[in-house]
Design a protein around this nucleic acid. Sequence first.
DNA 1: GTTTTTGCACTGACCAGTCAGTTCAAATAT
DNA 2: ATATTTGAACTGACTGGTCAGTGCAAAAAC
Lengths: 209, 209
Amino acid sequence: MESSSAASGGSTRREATRQKLYEAAVTLIAEQGFSATTVDEIAERAGVAKGTVYYNFASKSVLFEELLRHGVGLLTASLRDAAEQTAGRGGSKVDALDAMIRAGLVFIDRYPAFTQLYVAELWRTNRAWQSTLMVVRQQAVAVVENVLREGVGNGEFSEEIDVPLTAAALVGMVLVAALDWKSFQPERSLDDVHAALSRLLQGRVSGCR
Amino acid sequence: MESSSAASGGSTRREATRQKLYEAAVTLIAEQGFSATTVDEIAERAGVAKGTVYYNFASKSVLFEELLRHGVGLLTASLRDAAEQTAGRGGSKVDALDAMIRAGLVFIDRYPAFTQLYVAELWRTNRAWQSTLMVVRQQAVAVVENVLREGVGNGEFSEEIDVPLTAAALVGMVLVAALDWKSFQPERSLDDVHAALSRLLQGRVSGCR
DNA sequence: GTTTTTGCACTGACCAGTCAGTTCAAATAT
DNA sequence: ATATTTGAACTGACTGGTCAGTGCAAAAAC
């Protein structure tokens, strides 16, 4: 029941409509915020009737919550992938972090609107989907935390580092740098941005060479 | 006639009311977002009548814009201060960056709601106050960029670093780490958080000791 | 023939912004 | 001293518009 549908995800008609609605909603909400975006707008942008929105989702905020889950699912999968691939190739943990930075950048490059929206909603309190966001945030940050912990375990990283805080800081570094990239110098290449962040991660900015 | 009022700037009745409105608006908007916050709520929280809001500000969004300018003014002043003080004491540029990280943390510690709101609105497009935000963002980031550029100039930092991007990444690191601190482990001390970020900045996490 | 979509009219809550009227402290007059 | 006036600051009921969500019959799609 429910999902089934093969890997790439969009075979039933219903699924296709939902996808269109996600895409319409994500851009509009990223631009204007949740409350300022109307259901009529979302329907129009998706090219469907308003009734269809309510046939597919119980309410505006349910649509939004499912959108969040959907997007963060993609992100965590791609981070985990990056971490595991370097592990498989016997790379160090710094390599794993570096690969995750790249994966993060690739994700943001492909889904800038989602990222925007995620950042904007993450630290809000008193909102209906607050708990959804909590769970979803923890999933993503946990992937980074795990790599850090493993690095501390095998002696690659100092034992003094504060794992949760450092993970948050790393995520923030990538997030903000990438959003700035997309907003203010979109012509730059991903490699370029990746190189700059890589340097910062490896302390080649200050301290040591 | 009218203002006169002593130097420090908060003695007229009007000024006091505006201040109350800022404080009410900043928390509500941080929690709920701009559009989800009603003028009635702001007035109620500030303990004034709705009409008073419109007596003091032309509209809801003008109130918000002035709030933004006000807050970012405080932040840049405190960052600049931090940078200049270490310069005065002949400290290195890493010291200056470190001092700015601390200043950032102190600011966020004191005005968490403002920070929340700032992050949430910064990358939105198509909003009335978009241009205000641009200006205001540039002011803050420029302070960091200057220190980086000076560091490159005097050979302390590698010439290969990308100044605007690194500045953005540093700001992001502090911003996200601090918001996480306030949201998820508020009991930790500022020194603690500062130490963790300092370590990351100086590359003592990976790479070299 | 069942599922999904459409189109559209409707409701009721909510909300930004307005405005006629009130308050009160300081200025001026007596 | 006491009465009167002035005007900036404030009030809160009201208005006009917007929008989430509903209901449903007819049309497509499968």
